[in-house]
Design a protein around this nucleic acid. Sequence first.
DNA 1: AAAAAGGACGCCC
DNA 2: GGGCGTCCTTTTT
Length: 346
Amino acid sequence: MSNPEGSLSEGTEYRSPIGMTEDSLAVMERNRVSREPWDIEETKPCVEGQERGVYLSCFDMLLTEDATWLVKVSEASPAVAVPMYRMEPQEEPEQCPVIDSQEHGLSPGLEGQEEERSLEQVQSMVVGEVLKDIETACKLLNITPDPIEWNTGNVQKWLLWTEHLYRLPHAGKAFMDQIGKDLCAMSEEEFRQRSPQSAWMKERCSVGDTKTTAGEDLWSEADSSCSGQPIHLWQFLRELLLKPHSYARCIRWLNKEKGIFKIEDSAHVARLWGLRKNRPAMNYDKLSRSIRQYYKKGIIRKPDVSQRLVYQFVHPVCGRGGGGDRNLPNPEDKLSHNALEHRFKT
DNA sequence: AAAAAGGACGCCC
DNA sequence: GGGCGTCCTTTTT
């Protein structure tokens, strides 16, 4: 039984089972690469960087911001609280309750425990994905993932990358001649003093209005719509597929290499598409009609063995992150990606 | 019942 | 004209 048409008024937020809005999820998800979630062990070296506190790092820009969003959401829905101080990967998550049920006047039942687990998973995902992003960025920049080893050139590279990624004002001069060790030793206050403009930008991102489409806007900015063109449905689907820890519940790869994906929750995907296009009456019937238009154009097709809600990108293309997450020819995408690589690899 | 397929028409860029 | 969004009928799962 799907959502009756038109029942979702404009601006209505989809609330996931764990109590987070789509917007907050979307913000969490920005700029990540498309590797599978849950495997955070491999990026352990980066955790050291976090502990040392590289304040103008991807970690800071993403993690602190994400954590703030998480907290904001938790404030809006008291049933779910994600304390900021619990963002580190836990060695024994079972013993580290995320929800302080006493503080929030809730008695921990089976449902509560399940929510706790979900939240722990979300936290691990956020941390894991951020760490992966850092690792990926470092690979792309050809620098070590451990900031303590960065020389001045590495630091400037990282700054340039971060500024570009988050559209921050140029802050490189403020950190001229700084080596990674300096950055790691820097307190947040020192960082703010050194680059008040960037600090302000960060603040502004954190204080977004969760009730509006702020999250959506930020998300859009960082994704397909940065070209200025209205997003295509196939691009949107790809975006969702690239963010499995957010959207795997509604759409996921069956065979990433072949571009085969399954829509697990047609109503949800349609709702997201409707939100993105500001079409509150969007439903799967209409969305699927648009997908079927792609058959003739050779963009999406039904897989050889046709299954309900399973489609296939006709031209899966491997891309960034080495995970084969590019699925369609997109000249603009490719250009910008190549330009980025060229710009930062030197 | 939900999904799939595709025709038809309208709207907006 | 392209890319949907909407509505529709028929067929399949």
